[in-house]
Write a protein that binds this DNA or RNA. Structure first.
Lengths: 345, 345
DNA sequence: TTGAAAGCGCTACCAG
DNA sequence: CTGGTAGCGCTTTCAA
């Protein structure tokens, strides 16, 4: 490989254009005033040299990194089964951030408690100007941490208690769950179980509460409510235990779609048919739910929309003037064929 | 909110410790020599001030951003059905990069051709020190681009033609497909179709070739081979067309697991049973395949492993001395219940 | 309208 | 073993 020439700097451009670096800077930040002729010369020189301002120099000079951090907790080694690497969220977030010149820096942590350290490191080293918080937990200390670090932050989810942090809830608390409950009740279900996500997750808690409240209006209580990781295998285990203890359950809700699929697998393996013997409802509205047999009734929520909206909130916290607003629809029940009338008799 | 004090700088630490900035720098980069006493004083001062070296200053000074870029093409708005946001890959990549202090910067592009521009921008602005390339295409120009930009790069996949770029192939060309072919042939299948990924993808091409070659050894030719996007809906459409034209097909392979699920859905909706009437094989080994009914026979490959290995390759290109090697297993056929003997008669 | 100079926070090179 | 100095590439007063 031949020695590659040093990247051109603003000084080179200035020299070529026969002006000062100041002039170049002004042109590229449309600050101050520059005569049209000079500007043309400068732009021409920059083009010739293929010069682009150095992001690192700008970062140092302006004390902003133009980067937003997203820190994710990866519980296990296998991520396929982990709904917590929020692909759709990123798909919504990133383009909006990029439209304002912000990059998205992804970090994963093995342990929950590493997170605080990671935020601190990123913030203190000035690697990021702000962060997107996901997976809101009960007792979450990240909001205070962000404030202490002076780090603009937006939470995608609902804070566990009143908090001044900017957040973007998943719709009103537990949205979609009342509809799911009504749906099951209308089909005649009375013995309903809920295979839930982790106990300490705010989102899971809100949904569980909304579900319980909706059922209570019909004087129904969940026959069982288990909490645990958002993993299909955990859902499978818990479904099996559920069926052992309450074989007469007629409907099961799951905290996540892939959990519901795993649950259905257990049902089939016990000779129970869905929905003839047991109805099943998932949560999230992943596309696969449409293709499986029976098609999965679920509560769909749109993380892409939520990601976009969160990006806007954060950009504003970062001092950007953003006009655009993005719609975020409420989570909604999608009735497909994994739910049906309770069996007569 | 009260006015937050300016972040401490190395000068503050030096002042507090009563030494020069040089001394502080030396301690934190264990360069040069510093007496134990001085070092202790310096560390103490840094601790008191909660000082962390500024990443941006280091970036400017060292002309490295300590960041690696990952640019992804997002074809549609809905990412759920898009296997191209390679979650598992990221899960493998990021921790290894982070272990050496490298961050992972994620960018998405709407159009394929925007990619070149994005690489150029990142490289010229020195936002990234290197890139991970995914989704190897036939006619791919990114390798030359990376060289032109002097940007260390590693391709996860196989280059479309001989190229000096560092890459991490998905095992030997088309690995797993011969096994899949043998499996079907052994079950008595002769009328086999392949609902493939995009025509211009190297990985898809290699797999198709490997499949065709393996079948040819048994004097079998695919009754149909369609190419198209890696999307379930496309797979559904193509499956329907396939069944219209070749109703006598007894086995269908798919370029991706979620495509296979969509295909099975179409089969069921036509009253065909899997595997009694038609056998189905997917590709990738996503976890959901285990939970659906019937469980999906597939070729599993481990993107997490591949991500780790790719990170090591890139780190070395970036001049890091990495001892650790990560195992990358060959893709392997996982026989489950979506394949069965061809129906007698 | 233009540019000289100072300096963002850090590290490398030398001289002491 | 220690520290002064120069400078990474850029922007921003402020003076001409």
């Amino acid at each position: 490989m031949t020695e590659r020439p040093r990247r051109p700097t603003i000084t080179d451009v200035a020299a070529l254009a026969g002006v000062s670096r100041t002039a170049v800077s002004k042109v590229f930040n449309d600050h101050g005033s520059i005569s049209l002729a000079t500007e043309a010369r400068i732009r021409e020189a920059a083009r010739k040299l293929q010069w682009t301002p150095s992001a690192t120099a700008i970062a140092l000079r302006s004390a902003r990194s133009w980067t937003v951090g997203l820190i994710l907790h990866r519980p296990g080694l296998e991520p396929d089964d982990d709904p917590r690497l929020p692909v759709s969220l990123i798909a919504g977030l990133e383009p909006v951030l990029a439209s304002r010149g912000y990059g998205l820096l992804l970090q994963t942590t093995a342990e929950e408690r590493e997170q605080a350290q990671t935020y601190r490191r990123l913030a203190e080293a000035k690697r990021v100007d702000g962060v997107v918080l996901v997976d809101s937990m009960i007792g979450d200390t990240r909001f205070e941490l962000a404030r202490e670090l002076g780090l603009p932050a937006v939470l995608v989810g609902t804070p566990w208690r009143e908090d001044p942090i900017a957040y973007l809830g998943h719709g009103t608390h537990g949205a979609g769950m009342p509809e799911a409950a009504e749906h099951l009740v209308a089909l005649g279900h009375r013995r309903i179980a809920y295979i839930d996500g982790p106990e300490h997750q705010v989102d899971a808690r809100d949904r569980a509460q909304a579900l319980a409240a909706a059922l209570a209006r019909h004087a129904i209580r969940l026959v069982a409510h288990t909490t645990g990781p958002y993993s299909p295998s955990s859902a499978a285990v818990r479904t099996a235990e559920l069926l052992d203890r309450w074989p007469d359950v007629t409907a099961i809700l799951y905290g996540e779609d892939t959990m519901a699929l795993a649950g259905m697998h257990v049902l089939w393996s016990r000779g129970l048919r869905v929905p003839e013997d047991v109805s099943v409802i998932g949560y999230n509205g992943i596309e696969v739910g449409e293709w499986v047999q029976p098609q999965l009734t679920t509560v769909r929520r749109d993380s892409v929309q939520r990601g976009r909206a969160a990006a806007v909130v954060l950009l504003r916290l970062l001092g950007q003037h953003v006009e655009q607003e993005y719609l975020v629809e409420e989570p909604a029940l999608v009735v497909r064929s994994s739910t049906g009338p309770v069996r007569a008799g």
